[in-house]
Design a protein around this nucleic acid. Sequence first.
DNA 1: TCATTATATCACTATATGATGATGTAATAC
DNA 2: GTATTACATCATCATATAGTGATATAATGA
Lengths: 134, 134
Amino acid sequence: MLLTTERSGVAVRARLFRGFGDPSRLSILEALRSGFHTVSDLVKETDLSQSNVSNHLSCLRDCGLVTAEQKGRYMWYRLSDERVGELLKLAEALLADVARGVYECTRYDTPARLPETSALLEVQTNTGNRNEAN
Amino acid sequence: MLLTTERSGVAVRARLFRGFGDPSRLSILEALRSGFHTVSDLVKETDLSQSNVSNHLSCLRDCGLVTAEQKGRYMWYRLSDERVGELLKLAEALLADVARGVYECTRYDTPARLPETSALLEVQTNTGNRNEAN
DNA sequence: TCATTATATCACTATATGATGATGTAATAC
DNA sequence: GTATTACATCATCATATAGTGATATAATGA
């Protein structure tokens, strides 16, 4: 039973989106859009530490977003499917139009984040409530 | 300065993807694919608590993924852009093919999750390393 | 008016998640 | 052989995030 999109597909798809939902991983994916990269390539391009990149790659591989192939002592990574690139592109386009929304984002008190990149990025993701509506 | 996709766009886009990257929010977005819904509609359809739904909606609105309009004492929510639906669809299609990847996922020790939905969903997202490569 | 319905807000708490640094392990180079 | 390079793994810790329950608010209905 290969759970694809039906039952409990929501949780799996959420996982998939999470793959894209981190700045470090997104940087890696962006880098891979231009083709094969080794881990050290990615370390250079993203300015992340080697273990950090490796761990994220491991996660991305688990999610099925990238695939790897060993050649000598190098591991060559690439996007697993062109639709990964399409998703990135589509999100880009979407963002260009809903940017105002993201722009305005500052829910609650903005729990403090990178001082430089910050401010505009504070799209809080919090939740809460009661269910008396039953 | 309306940061769209250029500088620091990675962080913003990651935020956008995070909007999709949670099972509860994804359920809400899925429900909204079929059109306008009130909060109470969504509470029924998703089995989440009212405050939970409201908080997630607040987050989704901040991300620009949904928009709302008040009519009387009801708030009518809908997807803000058809590309939101397209992203959901594309991810669905992608998942159908990379499902094997997600299927196999169990990184580290699988920190315990929903006993029923579980197992297959365990796409761990951890990271780590050292950077001596400098 | 008061009750009820529909929704939002928020403090609080438990858990998930990301980054780091240390270390393991192959593959090549010398 | 030893050294070095390329990468993976993992424990640890700090922070982000989601859910809950209580409460606020606004709109309608009686």
